[in-house]
Each structure stands twice: as structure tokens, then as C-alpha cells.
Design a protein around this nucleic acid. Sequence first.
RNA 1: UCCCGAAUAGCUCAGUUGGUUAGAGCAUCUGACUGUUAAUCAGAGGGUCACUGGUUCAAGUCCAGUUUCGGGAGCCA
Length: 479
Amino acid sequence: MFNKRVKIKKLLATEATGQEVIVMGWVRTFRNNQFIALNDGSTNNNIQVVIELGQLDDATLKRITTGASLKVTGTLIESLGKGQKVEVKAGTVEILGDCDPEKYPLQLKNRPSLEYLREIAHLRFRTNTFGAVFRVRHSLAHAVHKFFHEKGFVYLHTPIITASDAEGAGEMFRVTTLSMDNPPRNTDGSIDFKEDFFGKSTNLTVSGQLEGELGATALGEIYTFGPTFRAENSNTTRHLAEFWMIEPEMAFSDLEDNMNLAEEFIQYIIRFAMDNNREDLEFLAQRLVEEEKALPQDKRSEFGLIEKLEFVLNNGFERITYTEAIDILLNSPAYKKKKFQYEVKWGIDLQSEHERYLVEKHFKKPVIVTNYPKDIKAFYMRQNDDGKTVAAMDILAPGIGEIVGGSQREERLERLEQRMREMHIPVEEMNWFLDTRRFGSVPHAGFGLGFERIVLFVTGMTNIRDVIPFARTPKNCEF
RNA sequence: UCCCGAAUAGCUCAGUUGGUUAGAGCAUCUGACUGUUAAUCAGAGGGUCACUGGUUCAAGUCCAGUUUCGGGAGCCA
């Protein structure tokens, strides 16, 4: 019975021919006891269902409230009113699910704030904004797989649970089945993890990269796309405790191949969303304009959302070395006017204010910064011949900051072991990883891209909690 | 974790120098109207002013602490 339903997106694109149709959806508004704006999530646009006066009994009429779900059988006709091309002249109207307006927390005419909607995240999909965001998110996710598949990459499912604590990418969530009240202990009082489920201490993954390298050095090119967990006490608009990360890894590749892949990849998935979600992106662009009306002129975006995305597609990314970035900062008017709070000199990690200056003021587009000082980067990055820098690359995006972090990997065993010892990484526990360098080692490279951050960039949303269905952040694990 | 800010009706907000019974728009309810487009018009109900303590003749308003939320910073993707 349900499969005869026509999705509203399809219906709105259909010529009115007087055909009988079945539509189902949720009431957005009910005007004049006569006009129902019905939405089924396939598009932000509603189909107007028209009820003749006296067609329905009063009891049924009263049950057509905002949020109620309906099955309507009727005739698709050319609209008699202005504002829409077609409408459904109702034959029968069946209430699938009532929605008590006194209790329903989502009254759209109240212009609920994003903050309020976060508190009712289980219902916020029913708004235009979140409908658009999550349809775009879907397209981006689909495009990720499409891109890598077309390039011959293998989608590798790296583990969620890991015993490795050497990834160094942040605080980890412990995974255990031991009793919290009375855990087994060693004679010295420490907890005896030999009794734990895996017989050792385990955590949720903070990165699939190391396992990804194992795959890439056999399958050639792989990518991961899965949930990632960081137990950092980060309270920002761009951090989540549980987020989705994409990590490609390529054998026989260097830093430049890596940059080329990252740029092509980002452009590809943006293009896919532009081609497949034009209406949603236009809605989000308009939403951004409305939101920014409240801001002073100088805080508003220079370009609209669509223009920003088109610019990225047409102009690509700026590429500079870390050393060049420092020079630009030192010669900047902002530096000379002492606008920077943090010191600028070779060797520092770039602060948010520095990244923002480079991306938003100087270049006004995404920037790839390469060859960072080795002391501020991870142990596995390939050491350059200058002895000071490593073949790292970060991609910085306007309004978001770091969106990609990657590098060419150190494939020379001695260099890698030496660096691990310098940085106090337990070499013995990493033998499985070092075997890739012992047996047929090859130059290889890869990067990690925070999926929610690219969704932020494409949708123009500004808080990462608004681009994932149910955000996990410090002190917040609702739903 | 640090800095700054906020918390008043279901939602979005106003509330003056501390001073009578705390307001508006929307939502909700009742009625009217009936080709509406965030429908319109008339009326009604709706408040532990986040919590705890303090100052004061008097606190939504001032002070302290707590909680939650937002923005920024750090950590990073």
C-alpha cells in the first residue's frame, strides 16, 4: 500500500495532468481550514493539499495540526492560486499520526533558534535548515565513496577498538568490561588489564591511519571513512568527541601527489553537492544571508555561499611552505600593527589568528601549508633533507581552520625508529607497523579529512554540532 | 581547561536609576472569515524572572557561589 506513495520532490516536478496521486507527509502549516502545506523530507518545498469546504467533518479537520502525519489521496491539478504550479485536490485525507499542538515542541512559526533546536535534535530534521543540511551531508558522504571508487581506491574498514596508544592524536576513550567498582589489580595496585575482555588495555580509535598504511602498502591505494573518537575536553564550534574522518593512504606517492589528491577530492565532493543539491544549497545560502543581517557589516561573509563554493571549484587552493607562511605573517600589516596576540617566529605552531589571517585576509581562499618544523608534527612524517622540517601538509579553510592534516610518511626504517625514540614512542609495541618499513618499504602518503568540517564549509553552518545528527561533546550525550 | 557573555511565558525577546499587580510578537485555545502563502480579524489562558545564599524598608534588576547554554582561546580533524 505504501509503495504507491509519490515523493513530493517528484510530484512538484510533474506536469499536472489530472492524475490520481497518493502523498504522505507531515503538516507544516494548515491555512484557512483549507490549505495544507505538506512535507515529506524529500525536499524543502511543500505540496499544497486543498480541501473543499465541508469536505471533511469537524473532528477530522481539528486533527490536521502542525506536525501531524497524513495520507492524502487526490488529484494533481494546476494550482488555482499563485505561489505554486501544482497542488493536490484532496479526495480522502487520512490522519496517520496525531500531533498535539499544545505539546509539540517544534512550532516553526516561532522561528526557533539553532540553540533551541539542538535541545530537540530528535525533531530538528523536520525543519528546512536541518532537512537541507542532512541531505547535503548525505550527498557529500556518497560522493566520498564515489570519488575513491572511481579512482580505484579500496575502502578499508580499520578497527574502531584499538590497543595502540601510540597514535598520539589525542586523549582516548577507554573500552573495558572490567568492573568499575572493583577491578582486578596487580600486586602493585595497578589495574590488571590481562583480566579485561581483550587481555590488554583498549580504547576507541583516534585515527585509522596506521592500519591504513598497512593496507596501502599492499593494496596500493586505500581509504577509510568511519567514526573517530577523541576524549579531549574541547568546547568549540569545530570539535566533536565522536566525528567521522576520511583517511586516504597511497603507496608510491609523495607530498605533491598527496596535495593533488586532497585538492581534487575536495573539489569533487563539492561539485557533486552543487550538482545534486542545488535547491538545498540555495536555501542554506539564503539562510546565511538572513543570519548575517544581524551582524555588523565587517563581520559578514564577503561572498554568498554558492559564490564561495564556485570560487573554490574554479580557483583551487593556494600552496605555500610553512617558512613562506611565517614570512607572510612577519611582513603583514597585522603583524606590524601588533594585531597578533601570539608571537610569530619560525618554529611556532600556527595559531588560529595566524591561520585566519593567511586564509581570510591574505589569500582569501583555502591554503595548503607544507613542510612544517619537525618538532611540532607527528613521528611518522617524512623528514626532509634540511634536517629541520617534515613533509607535512595542512589544508586551511576560511571560517573553519584546519580541514585536512596529512603528510608523506617516513618510509626509511632507521630514520623512523630514531624519530620514535626521540619522541618516546614505544618502538617494541609498534613492530607490526614497522614491518611495512622492514619488508618492501615504499614511499607513501596520506591525509585525514574531518567530514563534519567539510560539511560545515559546504553548508555555511557555523557550529559543528549542527551538521551531525546527534552531537557528542563534553557533558553532552543526549539521544 | 581558560577568558568573555547570557539565562524573564511553549518559542523569540523587551523590562529605564532597585519602587504598585512583570510586558510584546509568535505559538496555543475560543470565535469570525473563507483561494490561503509565516493567511487575516476579535478575544482568552499562560510566569518558582535558572538555582542557592546575601545586601536592602523593598531585588527580574545589586553582590557571591552553583548549574546550563553561547562566543572566543588551547588541543585537533
